[in-house]
Nucleic acid binder design. Sequence first.
DNA 1: GTCTATATCGGGATAGAC
DNA 2: GTCTATCCCGATATAGAC
Lengths: 228, 228
Amino acid sequence: MRSSTKPDALTKAEETRSRILAAALELFRRRGFDETTMREIAAEAGVALGSAYYYFASKEALVMAFYAQASKEMSARIETRLAETKGLENQLRAILDVKFEYFAPNRLFLGALSRHAADPHNPLSPFSAETAHIRELDLQHFAAALRGSRIAIPKSLAPYLPNLIWLYQMGLILFWISDRSPGQIRTRQLRDKSLSLLVTALKLAGFPLLRPLRKKIVDLLTAIEADT
Amino acid sequence: MRSSTKPDALTKAEETRSRILAAALELFRRRGFDETTMREIAAEAGVALGSAYYYFASKEALVMAFYAQASKEMSARIETRLAETKGLENQLRAILDVKFEYFAPNRLFLGALSRHAADPHNPLSPFSAETAHIRELDLQHFAAALRGSRIAIPKSLAPYLPNLIWLYQMGLILFWISDRSPGQIRTRQLRDKSLSLLVTALKLAGFPLLRPLRKKIVDLLTAIEADT
DNA sequence: GTCTATATCGGGATAGAC
DNA sequence: GTCTATCCCGATATAGAC
């Protein structure tokens, strides 16, 4: 518990903890996740190996701490940007921009983590139960952008859209992580073209002739959602 | 090189090699990939640790050998099934069936490997350069099914379809790998509904009113394909 | 409660004798 | 081509100083 005599300062323990986390992230960024050892992290933070383990039960726990911090910081930025931006496509782009900007220095690091991305049962996966609260925050941003949009979205489809767009965004991020084109130009192209496609598709979604297709899509989404 | 005096029998070396591979796969299936150690594999195969490494440079190499074997065996089965099946949807389902049947005993094992799935630069990823020849075989099956179909597919879209369907199939397999519903019922539902959706979408693809959407899709696909 | 120092283990990979 | 003996190193457990 925080000492009640210094409510504004970090306690010694909190200071040590955040120094260890900072050292870990610095090394993860510089050398990648797998290559960084707990011994190096402890050395970089100026503590003994045992201390590092005292604060973080595993290397994995350091990653979870990173997730929490990133989610919190990005969420604030996203809310600011959404308030200054008009139009669904622009708002979605704004969300993506915040993420890419924030993640840019961590691309190598995230690349190592993406190994776990495909396994929803791995705690580090963006699909896992352990990261559910982070996902939830993201979903709220997407839902807000959709609510503010003037595009008429079919009622049957609407409940699934935040999740679908979240998934789309994860796909883009995964693509970006292993995009080796200079400055990740290809991801930028993909982002622009796919965003434009997405918005066009949403505009067409209510079109009567597409009813059978829409029905099949909703049917599919319902089946997937069943429990998860 | 194989001894020319016994063209039909396995040489001793080949026998040892395949015994090691069989032991490895058996253990991978039973206990999972990470949990299985090279020491156990050697013991199960009745050879020394060093011998296992003589035949397979790493645990990873054992996986690549599994891939090669699986690809070869499934390819033969798929060709048989395609010859007996009519209609695009049925043919696609036939291909998926062969894969799921073949992979069924290896679900746990594949689950551990799926960690690498998201990283195209990892040799074990289905997207990697090292697995390109396996992917190529798959693509040919999908291309054959599409060629044999009576559905009129827009010229602009056609070249991308085998790749797209291959990607769709990978998505299904990834879903299946971590599908914990009894008997993987949910994957079966998803397979049926998504196949039906896919075929419906292909039938509608040439529809004139969808031209702007189609154009955007082709545009997107072209950008992605650019080099990779 | 916070942290250091040290010991031990598990497992991938390799060297070199035979 | 097969073995034994090691190397190396990340991870973990623990005893105990402060």
